[in-house]
Nucleic acid binder design. Structure first.
Length: 496
RNA sequence: GGUAACGUGGCCGAGUGGCUAGGCUCAGCUCUGCAAAAGCUGCUACAGCGGUUCGAAUCCGCUCGUUACCUCCA
């Protein structure tokens, strides 16, 4: 089962065998959220995608350092000079300190990701905590002659850079085409070219989030944080850089340019991975379209597009049932199908635990053994083929059919090799729980079940079936629950 | 306008030259006191038209349709 993990690298537009720079160590950087609003389904897709990559790399016994940033400064509403910082805008609206906004939405993001069973990254750096590193990087780029200062701001000189480098290598853009087709935006007077992007922006007198710099008070450009922080924690070259497809241009293109133009002189990462978007009725779910669905809405079912509420694991399964590079279309029907599929997979987990290898083996069934082992290999084949969780899940369902048949006695456990059964059990458990990161979501409510038991208790008592009454009492006591026969009725309490 | 994708059966969604993807839905069967679960079987798939090939959903061309990026977005 020693297959290689292959990943699609946007830089080369090919699937490539994954070879870490310094095995068994793997460095992985993913663009995290800008914390100025509620996390939505798109955030979930990105987070779940890289969570599975992180989990799978760990499953392959790599020692992974996973860095995912929190953008809390510098992300402007638009590229024009008067573009307002997203965080600051929100802070003004809500009469809060910018850092209160940042903290609030960071907390919400963490809570929602926890619900989705997304593992926390090993390092979660914030842009505002790395101003010094960003200023250093700007100075390097200035010294290398690939940036210029203008009126207290510093801009990256794309055309100067493009003489010796290829600006556009990641996204397939051509500088000449970009120049010919760039839309005219207001207030780009300071820039030498419309393609140039800000490394440092001068803060206007009313701008709250500001830091001193060699160029006066200001704040860093959005693209810079990722370059500076990935370098700090993962080195000048690291293995994997991930993010949403919409960040490929300009954000990731700029990251590469900055890293090349600084003293790092690298593309930063060797494998650039991009997850695709969630669509609603075939259209991208986006802020500007106003058709995005927050995770809290999905969990509560409180949204005009939602016919029901959908649990975190349903959403996780929904995301995993598509390949991460395909668009994934939202619909109630699809979510409801996902809920059933997820439940089926969970039920399989319990069935699996009940399969016991019998004391006496029967006539071995070579074909059945072979089939089962092939199915387990198929599960990994899907994962290794560019993290194709859709294929892995399909294989798991195929495996599950056999598991159910074994459970029902339609296939004989005894006709299996013991090792085959063990492989089936470990493969299913490891993939579902550890790699895909699905977990059981109990829909049963303990108190309601307790009420049910108390009703039986009451009936037994009325029928004077005291052996049954005593048995119920004894069983509940094992759970730390005592029954209280009150004059007013039957109640319960935790045993003290 | 430039660039890049995509169009698979009722729905979602895999699949890059020949082997049943899978899930959900629907119908039937087995099991069953009734049901459920589970198993089995079935249901008009590969936008259209050409071409390459012994053979194409898969490669090439054209047509139609949809989308994404080029502005903030995961």
């Amino acid at each position: 089962m020693q297959q290689k993990l292959n990943l699609y690298n946007t830089l080369t537009r090919k699937k490539e065998a994954f070879e870490p720079l310094h095995a068994p160590f793997v460095g992985m950087y993913v663009c995290g959220p800008t914390v100025y609003g509620e996390p939505h389904l798109g955030h979930a897709r990105s987070a779940v995608t890289y969570d599975v990559l992180y989990r799978y790399l760990k499953h392959l016994e790599y020692k992974v350092r996973f860095v995912r940033n929190i953008t809390d400064v510098g992300h402007l509403e638009n590229d024009a000079d008067e573009g307002e910082d997203k965080i600051q805008k929100r802070a003004k609206l809500e009469h809060l300190e910018p850092m209160e906004v940042v903290q609030h939405y960071t907390n919400v993001y963490h809570q929602d990701m926890d619900k989705l069973n997304v593992l926390r990254p090993d390092i979660e750096p914030r842009a505002s905590g790395h101003i010094i590193e960003q200023i250093e990087m700007i100075q390097e780029i200035l010294q290398n002659g690939l940036a210029y200062e203008a009126n207290g701001s510093v801009y990256f000189d794309v055309q100067a850079y493009n003489k010796d480098h290829n600006y556009g290598k990641l996204s397939g853009r051509v500088v000449e085409d970009l120049l010919a087709n760039t839309r005219e935006l207001e207030g780009q007077g300071e820039k030498r070219s419309s393609l140039d992007f800000a490394l440092w922006k001068k803060a206007s007198p009313t701008h709250i989030m500001r830091w001193p710099s060699p160029w006066g008070d200001g704040f860093p450009g959005w693209h810079l944080e990722c370059s500076a922080m990935s370098r700090k924690y993962l080195g000048t070259t690291f293995d994997i850089h991930g993010g949403g497809l919409d960040l490929m241009f300009p954000h990731h293109e700029c990251e590469i340019a900055q890293s090349q133009a600084s003293n790092s002189h690298t593309d930063a990462a060797r494998y650039w991975i991009h997850n695709n978007m969630i669509t609603v009725n075939g259209q991208k779910m986006g802020k500007s379209l106003g058709n995005f669905i927050n995770l809290s809405d999905l969990f509560s079912g409180n949204h005009e597009l939602l016919e029901a509420k959908y649990s975190p694991m349903t959403i996780r399964f929904f995301i995993l049932q598509a390949h991460y590079r395909s668009t994934l279309d939202f619909s109630n029907e699809a979510l409801q199908a996902a809920r059933k599929g997820y439940t089926k997979l969970m039920n399989g987990l319990r069935v699996l635990d009940k399969l016991q290898y019998p004391a006496e083996a029967a006539e071995p069934d070579a074909k059945l053994n072979e089939d089962l082992l092939k199915l387990t290999e198929d599960c990994f084949r899907g994962m290794n083929d560019d993290l194709n969780t859709a294929r892995t899940i399909a294989s798991l369902f195929n495996l599950l059919k056999k598991i159910n048949s074994l459970y029902l006695g339609q296939l004989q456990i005894a006709s299996l090799e013991k090792s085959t059964l063990e492989t089936v059990q470990s493969t299913y458990r490891e993939l579902v729980l550890d790699v895909l990161g699905l977990k059981e979501e109990s829909t049963a409510h303990a108190e309601e079940m307790l009420d049910l038991v108390l009703n039986f208790y009451k009936e037994a008592k009325e029928a004077k079936a005291y052996d049954k009454v005593d048995a119920i009492r004894a069983e509940l006591k094992k759970q730390g629950i005592v029954i209280k026969d009150l004059k007013t009725g039957i109640d319960w309490a935790y045993e003290e």
